[in-house]
Design a protein around this nucleic acid. Structure first.
Lengths: 323, 323
DNA sequence: TACAGTCATAGATAATTATCTATGGTATTG
DNA sequence: CAATACCATAGATAATTATCTATGACTGTA
C-alpha cells in the first residue's frame, strides 16, 4: 500500500521553487522573486506534493508553512541544492583549469628541467594533480601512440599532422669528461682526437643517443669503445669516476656539475630543442591548458627563452581556436 | 564565459540513468536494465552532458567510462540519489506512523491514566515524538477550537458534528476524606449529612467540578463551605491534611492513596468516561493514528475495558474510511 | 461588511521530455 | 576481414512540463 516517492519525476527546479516558498512563506513572493506568476508556483507546489505523495505545506495565519513532511522535504531540498551547487563550482574551477588533473610525458632528459616549471605551477595551483611520466624517447612515443598523456615533451616531436609542437627550450648536447680530463684545455679539439676514447652512451631508444649517432655518422668517424648506460645520472657519475667520456644534455650537467666538465669539442654543443607536444584532436584538460599558459608566462623569466615563449603562445592560440 | 551547470533542468531520472551507465559501463546494458531502448539512453546521456556543459563519458576499449568530470558527476549522482532514497524511506515510516509526531491534549484528570498508554507506545515507537498538553476542560476546549492538537481526551466531548469521540475508559468520581475521617464507616451516608463539611473543589472550568456541580444541583443541596484549588494533586494533599473533603477521579486517588480514603456517599461514584476526541475533517498524522491503534489493542489488557476497545475500534474504522 | 491580499483551479499553449524505430558508423573479436 | 556488438543520429510521436491569463474562494482588516 505504501507508495514511495516518485523520485524519477523529481526536478531540481521543483526543489528550488519549493525551497523559496518555504523561505518566503508566500507563493506570491516566490513568484515575484523567481519571475513567475502566482498560479505557476501554485502548480509547481501541487506537482511536488503529488511526487511526494503527501501534503507538504499548509496555510496558517496567512502564511504558508511546511507540514512535518514538508519540513523534512525542505531540509532535503537545501541539502540537494547545495550539493548541486558545490558541483557547479567544481565545474567552474575545472573549466578554468584551477582544478583537475593532467598528465605529462617526459623524455628522460627533460626531467632535469621540467621541475622548474612544474614546481611553481603546482605551487600556484594546489588543486591540480599532475602526473608525470618519464621514459626514453621510444617509450614516450609508445605512450603517445596510445594517447596516454595530455602533453608530451620531446626533443624531436613525432611527425604527424594531428600533432602540435612548440619548441620551448634549447637543449644543447655537450661532451663531458672527468674533472681532470686531459682534453679539457685543448684548443680546436676534434672528434678525430677522441675516437679512441671510450664513450658512455645512452641506449638507442633515447633522443640524446640518436642525435649524437646522427652527428657522428655525419663525421664519418666510428668509435672504438662504447658502453651503454640507460640513465643520464649514471652516465654522469661514471664519467666523473673516469670511466670515459659522454654526450649529455647541458641541463644534466648544469644541474650538478661536480666531478665532470665540458670538453670544447668542435661542432659542439649540438643544438636541439625540447618541444611541448599535444594532439590536435585531443581536447586538452583545462588544467593542462592552464599549465601551458603558465609556462608561456614564465619561460623568459625562468630560462631566458623568449622564443620558446612565443612558440608556446602560438600553440595556445591554435588550441584555443580548435576548442 | 564560464557557464555554470544548468541545475534547473537536472532531473533525478537523468541521474539514475547516468549512474547506471557508469556502473554497467554500457548503454545497452542500462537500456535493458531500465527497460528502455539503447537510443533512449544515448539521448539521456547527451542531455545530461548538455546540462553539465562538459563531456561526462568517453569510450575506452569498448566500455563507456566517465571522464574526470563524469567521475565527479557520478559521485554526485550517488550522493543525491541516496539522499532522496533516505527521504523516501522516511516518508514510508512517516506514513506507517512509526515516525513523526503528534500532540494530544489532556484534561487534567486524564494525566493520571494516559501515561499508562503513552509510555508503552513510546517504548514501542521511539521515533515518534508525542507532545502532551494538559489543562482543565475549558483550556482544552480552547485548544480544540483552535485546532491545536491532533487528539484530545475529554470526559465530556464537545458536541459538534465534525467531532468523533470514543469513550475508552471509565472515570468514576469518588468522594474522599482524610485517613481517619469520621464518615468512613457510616452506612447509607447521604449528602445531607455532609453538607456542612468543607469541600475542596476544582475550579469551575474543570470537568470534575462541572460533573459534581451538576449532581449537587440535582440533589438540591447547597454546600456551606467550599474552597477552590486548581490541582487534583493539591486537593488530594489538602484532604489528607484534614482541610476538608473532595470529589476526585478514582484514578487520582488510586494512583497514590496515602492519607485519604473514599467515603461511601450514596449516589457515588459518579459515572463518567474519558473519550478520545478527534476532528473528522482533520487528517490525523499517521503517528496519531498508530497511537490510537495501539491503544485499541491494549485497553483490555491495561484497564480491563473491552467496551472502550470497541469504541476506539469504531473510531478507527471511521477515520480509515474518511481518509 | 466591503476591500485587499493570497492561494487554488480552469483552460490554453508553447516548449521540453521521454520514447520508439530505423539506420549508419566504429570498434572488437573470431 | 567478416561478423558482431555497441553507440550515435535522425525522424516521429505521445506525454509531460512550464507557463500564462482569467477567475473563484477564502481570510483578515478597515
Amino acid at each position: 500500500m505504501v507508495l514511495v516517492m516518485k523520485v524519477r519525476q523529481l526536478t531540481f527546479r521543483l526543489l528550488q521553487v519549493y525551497a523559496d516558498v518555504v523561505r518566503t512563506g508566500s507563493l506570491t513572493a516566490t513568484a515575484n522573486r523567481l519571475h513567475l506568476t502566482q498560479p505557476t508556483v501554485s502548480q509547481q507546489l501541487k506537482r511536488l506534493r503529488e511526487i511526494v505523495g503527501e501534503p507538504i505545506v499548509r496555510q496558517e495565519e496567512g502564511r504558508v508553512v511546511p507540514t512535518e513532511v514538508g519540513q523534512s522535504l525542505y531540509q532535503l531540498s537545501q541539502d540537494l541544492l547545495s550539493r548541486a551547487d558545490v558541483f557547479s563550482q567544481y565545474l567552474d574551477e575545472y573549466n578554468s583549469g584551477g582544478r583537475g588533473r593532467f598528465s605529462i610525458g617526459l623524455v628522460n632528459t627533460a626531467q632535469y628541467v621540467l621541475p622548474r616549471l612544474l614546481g611553481p605551477f603546482s605551487q600556484a595551483n594546489p588543486q591540480v594533480d599532475v602526473t608525470v611520466e618519464v621514459g626514453n624517447r621510444q617509450q614516450m612515443l609508445n605512450r603517445f601512440e596510445r594517447h596516454e598523456d595530455d602533453i608530451y615533451v620531446f626533443s624531436h616531436p613525432p611527425t604527424d599532422n594531428a600533432v602540435l609542437a612548440a619548441p620551448f627550450l634549447s637543449n644543447p648536447l655537450v661532451v663531458v669528461g672527468p674533472e681532470h680530463c686531459r682534453w679539457a684545455g685543448v684548443k680546436d679539439l676534434t672528434m678525430e682526437s677522441l675516437k679512441n676514447e671510450r664513450f658512455l652512451l645512452r641506449e638507442p631508444g633515447s633522443a640524446t643517443r640518436r642525435t649524437f649517432d646522427a652527428w657522428l655518422y655525419s663525421t664519418g668517424i666510428e668509435l672504438r669503445s662504447t658502453q651503454q648506460i640507460a640513465s643520464n645520472e649514471a652516465i654522469r657519475l661514471a664519467v666523473a669516476s673516469g670511466m670515459g667520456l659522454a654526450v649529455l644534455s647541458r641541463h644534466v650537467v648544469a644541474d650538478s656539475p661536480n666531478g665532470v666538465q665540458k670538453l670544447p669539442l668542435q661542432g659542439f654543443p649540438l643544438k636541439s630543442r625540447w618541444h611541448f607536444v599535444v594532439r590536435r584532436e585531443r581536447r586538452l584538460p583545462p588544467a593542462a591548458y592552464r599549465f601551458l599558459s603558465f609556462v608561456q608566462g614564465s619561460l623568459t623569466q625562468a630560462f631566458d627563452e623568449p622564443e620558446g615563449e612565443m612558440a608556446v603562445a602560438e600553440l595556445l592560440q591554435v588550441l584555443k581556436a580548435e576548442r
